[in-house]
Amino acid sequence: MIHEQCLKMNKIKYKSAEKQLLTEAIKLLSSQTGSRVKELALPNGNEANARITIALAGVEHHFNVAIKGEIRQNQVLDLIAQFGKNKDQWLLIARYIPKPLKDNFKSLGINYLEAAGNCYIQAKGIFIYVADQKVTPTREAATGKLWNATGLKFMMAVINNPALLNASYREIATAAGIALGNIGPLLDELQQGGYTNTKGNVERLVSRDKLITRWTEMFHAIIRPKLQKGRFRFLRTENAATWQDINDTDIYWGGEPGAALLTGHITPENFTLYSGKPGNELLKLLGMVPDNNGNIVLLDKCWGTLPGAAPGTAPALLIYADLAHGLDSRNKELAERIKTTYLNGE
């Protein structure tokens, strides 16, 4: 009774949807782990949305809670700043967190709890890690076909080259590397989602920044993990210095080397490479050897005839996505420069 009165006396900093998410998430956490989870009064002046206590195996810990819907890459730095040095006293509760971001949070020691039940919670005397719960059907349905693997390839083509919106279905399919029968439904969904409009007889993309941000997140969550062939390193130092001299029509640089070719403002430290060539052939051609901690990431080519932004590069959207996804501020600045120069819709 006293607990309930205290909650009423303090201003609760969440909306009804956030309240529902909080209630569902802590109930699921309790049932999955056998922990006791309760909401606490939120002290005046506390910037959290809520405050909870988790008791497990005789240990109890209080957490400030930040409640979010879907976590986007562009929110990560703000969350790190919000949690600060006291990150073990914070818990992020979200409707959905893309797997790459969950991995980032775990490596940074940021506690999170997803509506599906996946979580990483580590504080003094408490450690809970759940990573095998499927995303809820409600959340999956919200993404639509536009945001599955085929749709993302289609989106990569039209974001890189908006003129394709006014091309034949066959041209779009060939550029994206997907079956012809997908194009009509995907164009319809793009229009119904409010991502295009028509001026005269010309179809145009709108909300480009929103599309690019969303595409980047979904690419890293859905497509990229399936593309990665492994990590490697150059066998000799001179190979790293002469990477630009490699002349092959089926090698496409993304990430830092792609940015180097487009802007000239970076000397790559980490290499991202897309190719349709067999792995053994690439190892010999590039002078690479397998290394789980290597600075070269090799990925399968995931588009059709869509050209790169410059000879030897992957499409500009891929280079942007490679750079924007991490936490390196220099790479984020380069990503914005590439977006402005190569993804401005002209």
Rank of each mutant, 00 (worst) to 15 (best):
I178A: 02
T340I: 09
G304C: 04
L28W: 03
R51Y: 04
V297C: 11
F232L: 05
A50R: 05
G255C: 12
R170L: 06
A309G: 04
N10P: 00
K38T: 13
A324W: 09
L152E: 04
L165E: 08
G34C: 01
V206Y: 09
Q5S: 07
E189V: 04
L56T: 00
D88R: 08
A48R: 07
T23M: 11
Q73S: 11
N118Q: 06
I178E: 02
F234W: 11
F271S: 10
R337E: 15
G304E: 05
G193S: 15
T216N: 10
L146T: 10
Q192I: 11
T33I: 03
P315G: 01
D328R: 08
G264W: 10
A57P: 00
D209C: 01
I2P: 00
L306I: 06
N197Q: 14
A25C: 13
I80S: 00
L186I: 06
E24I: 08
Y120A: 01
D291T: 04
K68N: 02
R214P: 00
P100V: 11
V37E: 06
Q89A: 14
I212T: 11
A115M: 13
R170Y: 04
N44C: 05
N44V: 12
L77N: 04
G230C: 07
I223V: 13
L323D: 09
A309N: 04
N49Q: 02
I183H: 03
R36A: 08
I319L: 05
D78C: 00
I2A: 11
Q244H: 14
G312I: 11
L40P: 05
D78Y: 02
K38H: 12
A163V: 07
T313G: 09
K68I: 02
R214Y: 09
C119M: 05
N331I: 01
N293I: 01
Y169N: 10
L56A: 03
T138W: 08
T150Q: 07
G294W: 07
P307N: 06
G181K: 01
N74F: 15
W303G: 04
E70K: 12
A41N: 07
N201H: 14
Q20V: 09
V289A: 11
R236S: 14
G193T: 14
T272I: 14
G304M: 05
D322Y: 09
Y169F: 13
H265M: 14
T33E: 03
G84N: 09
R95P: 00
I97K: 08
L28E: 08
S329H: 02
K226R: 10
G117W: 06
R236N: 15
G177K: 02
P257L: 14
T136K: 13
G181H: 04
Y96E: 13
T198V: 15
